[in-house]
Amino acid sequence: MKRTYLGEFEEIVLLAVAVLNGQAYGVLLMHEIIEQTDRSVRLNQVHSALQRLEEKGMVRSEMGEPTNERGGRRKRLFSVTAFGQRTLQEIQEVRASFWERMANPLKLTMPI
């Protein structure tokens, strides 16, 4: 498999960036992920993941306009690159193909 490996957390961050569609930045992403996954996420983790994703070329960023609530500081806004999109798609396809080949699809309510 040639594509760059994505960690589970990175994948979630990348998905969140994709969902927020151009408006994604650190705090917002954190809140979004906390809401969706219900796990405790810290700001520095989100920033680290974003940096790694940018290094891998899956997101690109630009500085936004200054806003008052941040004391006049600009946000760094992230959006998914084409490479990022394709990676997400490939992951999705890989998973879908496994799910299809499964004889007895798992019930979603698994006994704990």
């Binding site: 930045y25 650190g26 705090v27 700001l43 920033h47 500085m63 609530e69 941040r70 004391g71 500081r73 600009r74 946000k75 760094r76």
Partner: peptide, 8 residues
């Protein structure tokens, strides 16, 4: 800038 902004 971005880190401090997010923190604030």
């Amino acid at each position: 800038e971005e880190v401090q902004g997010d923190l604030h």
